[in-house]
Amino acid sequence: MKQTITHILCATDLSKHSAYTMCHAASIAASTGAKLHLVHAVQPLSDETRTALQMYMQTTGSSETAEKARHDHAKAIMAERQRAFWDHVSEEDKGIRAQVASIELIDGYPAEVILRRASELNCDLIVLGAHEHGFSHTFLGTVAKRVLRRSNIPTLVVPYRGTAAHN
């Protein structure tokens, strides 16, 4: 029996190398006709970081302003990475962009965000990149290991490819 892929969740860490992972997810979406959902998790600040922000930013609301600026910066990077990715896609493949159903920045721990959104969106496949240092860091990055360990749907881990970001 052939399993149909209708929704793909592609998790990005916003690194310059995440385009390689996106390329694989877009290729699978193109060949299956699946909707593509892009997600980036903005990891919560640690208690130590919050304390440091409060100590060094004495004015009321400064730490909240810093957190909002952090989130806005991640949103700007995601928009730039998307623009750069689609600028490098060949003309014949630009139609794949219409299959992008959502692009989200979500506050939370990456593995939990990825698994929760995949479930909420009824995804059939998760695509994420290996840790930037390849299959080191005990073979996979911590996020990839956590997703693989807990996912109940197929999960594709794309190895880090150095400068081959758009190939």
Score class of each variant (00 low, 15 high):
A118I: 04
D72P: 01
A29N: 07
K68Q: 15
V127D: 03
Q54D: 14
P154Q: 07
T163D: 11
T4D: 14
A34S: 14
A66N: 01
A41I: 09
I103W: 00
L128M: 15
A101Q: 06
L121V: 03
D72L: 05
L9E: 10
R97L: 01
Y20K: 12
M78Y: 05
R97I: 01
S18C: 15
R161Q: 13
C123Q: 05
I77T: 12
I126F: 03
V113H: 08
Q82K: 02
A76G: 05
Q43W: 08
A11R: 09
S27I: 02
E132W: 00
A144W: 04
Y20Q: 12
E120I: 03
H24R: 13
D107Y: 08
N122S: 15
L38Q: 10
H37F: 07
N152P: 00
T142C: 02
K16A: 15
T4N: 12
Y20W: 09
E67L: 14
A69C: 02
P159L: 05
Y109T: 12
S46I: 08
A66H: 06
E132Q: 10
A19F: 10
R117C: 02
G134D: 04
C23E: 15
D107Q: 15
H88T: 11
K75N: 09
Q3H: 15
C123I: 05
A30M: 13
R83A: 12
D124Y: 01
H24P: 08
A130M: 02
H166V: 09
V127R: 04
N152M: 09
Y160N: 13
G141E: 08
H71W: 07
P110E: 07
E104L: 13
A74K: 05
H133T: 06
G134V: 07
I103G: 00
M57Q: 09
I103M: 09
L148K: 05
L115V: 04
Q82N: 08
A111K: 06
R117T: 05
I126D: 03
M1R: 14
C123N: 02
Y56S: 11
S63M: 12
M55T: 12
M1H: 14
K75L: 10
T21L: 08
A164D: 13
W86F: 10
E64S: 14
I114E: 07
H24L: 08
E92Q: 12
Q58R: 13
R70Y: 15
G134Y: 04
A26T: 15
Q54T: 12
Y109L: 13
R50C: 14
E104P: 01
G33K: 10
C10D: 01
R97N: 04
S119H: 14
K35M: 10
T32W: 13
P154S: 09
A74T: 00
S18T: 10
A144P: 04
Q3K: 15
A111P: 01
L121S: 06
T138K: 08
R117Q: 14
T4F: 07
D87G: 00
T163I: 05
Q43P: 13
A34M: 11
E104I: 01
D72E: 14
A76P: 01
A25E: 03
F139S: 08
E112T: 12
